[in-house]
Design a protein around this nucleic acid. Structure first.
Lengths: 250, 250
DNA sequence: CACTATTGTCTATCTTTAAGACAATAAATT
DNA sequence: AATTTATTGTCTTAAAGATAGACAATAGTG
């Protein structure tokens, strides 16, 4: 992505950024997608970017997410603005430059760029929830790697990115039942146990099996299909499918 | 307020603003505080302002609110960011200038100012809930007047300010029980009926008297005082006081 | 002293949530 | 083929919360 290299020369709104907390689900585990920057010093930072003059913030969030991770067409929503007075990249960037002095001479950080990027920034937090199996994150040349980290065992991230994840997760929990986005994380057909494991990952607590089944079925969004014979020595569970008539895709 | 006159020369973050939806309560009626601009053409606009480089957004919201309305020390919280691509003052300002051509020659709008203020703006919405009786809005010289308008009968406002009020009200309703800020709207001592009328204003619907009383008392935040003899020909209601031990003031 | 309007509270009913119990059953084991 | 094991679907019961109806207890009025 060209726009990452010289933000000061792009037609961006200044001092306003977007940070994305991409929560992913796989194997009963909730993770966060965190790129690791392609510099010495172990810098992890949430996928972030800036807003073009002629695009809306939601649109910008989607573009940034796709540009930085390759992920697109997913549910994505703002959850909070982070705008404390001293909020800036400067400490992080100075440390990065200090640790990469030798290799950085021919790279981007000229004075103008540095000043632009290290100003105080207000950032709009967006969060998403995706099925890790259905998504192929691809790193940009800016990153050394881009990996999923367990949400309760994150690497050290720059700035206030830990607080952002915490806040995003709280918002997700608050809205999960209403928005039904959780069902997008399941395969086409699935068992009730899989739904429960998904919920338990997101809320990080156990649910009673009997009552959970009732609650989910009472939502009236699932249709029951045939049974699923796994070969296990026990009663075969029913398969279900999400009835998404009148739901938005993605 | 000097800072209102030449925003382009102030040390503000560009293209980022704050809009305040000040909900006020009085006489069982919920209102919104809306200044009317001191220009020909009947322009109503929510109290808005910009963010200094060295202040946090919450701090900015409080300063803006006080500067534009005189109101301070109240609960104030962000509820949403408004950032569609075409979001700009320009249509409103052009109309304002058109209608005020003759008197505007000696006033502020030089080219630089106009360009600064009519760019695309992203705005962070903050809302507050206050007791109209305890608050004295004072207009600035920028305004012709500043008045309370019934929340379901607002004057035509500029830009997306109607949507902002709608969104703020929904957020308030969602959080009312948890935050207990509603009790700040009542006098020092009050009757249960007053609490109920307050709730009914905010939710725009009736509550059953018996169950409402139980629900509120079950919150365990009120202490019962003596009775209140109004002179009416009926049983005198008890007075209550809000026990705000461990609550934040304001 | 009846009468009116309003308040405080009780009860009955219904709904939701939580926890316990158990039959049904798919396959492995005997 | 009967027994065993792990898991599933659902029922029952209990507890908690919400909703609605009823009524006695006033503070004044006529």
């Amino acid at each position: 992505m060209r726009d990452i290299h010289s933000p000061s020369e792009q037609n961006y709104i200044q001092q306003l950024s977007i940070d994305c907390v991409i929560l992913g689900y796989q194997d009963s585990q909730l993770s966060v997608l965190v790129p690791k920057l392609n510099f010495r010093g172990d810098f992890w930072a949430l996928p972030s970017g800036f807003i073009y003059q002629n695009e809306g913030i939601d649109q910008a969030a989607r573009r940034i997410l796709e540009g930085r991770t390759g992920i697109k067409d997913i549910y994505l929503e703002q959850f909070r603005v982070f705008g404390d007075a001293p909020r800036s990249n400067i400490r992080f960037l100075e440390r990065l430059i200090e640790l990469n002095k030798d290799t950085l001479g021919d790279k981007q950080f000229d004075r103008k760029e540095f000043d632009w990027i290290t100003r105080r920034f207000v950032s709009i937090g967006y969060y998403a929830l995706v099925d890790i199996n259905k998504v192929v994150p691809r790193k940009t040349e800016l990153d050394e790697s881009i990996d999923w980290y367990p949400v309760r065992d994150l690497p050290p991230m720059i700035m206030d990115h830990h607080e952002m994840v915490k806040c995003a997760l709280e918002t997700l929990q608050l809205n999960l039942d209403q928005k039904l986005i959780a069902f997008n994380l399941l395969p086409e057909t699935f068992t009730m146990r899989e739904v429960q494991e998904l919920y338990e990952s997101i809320f990080d607590r156990a649910f009673a099996r009997n009552n959970f089944q009732k609650k989910i079925l009472d939502l009236n969004v699932l249709e029951r299909l045939e049974k699923k014979f796994t070969g296990a020595a026990n009663k075969a569970p029913f398969l279900y499918r999400f009835r998404n008539e009148g739901m938005q895709a993605g």
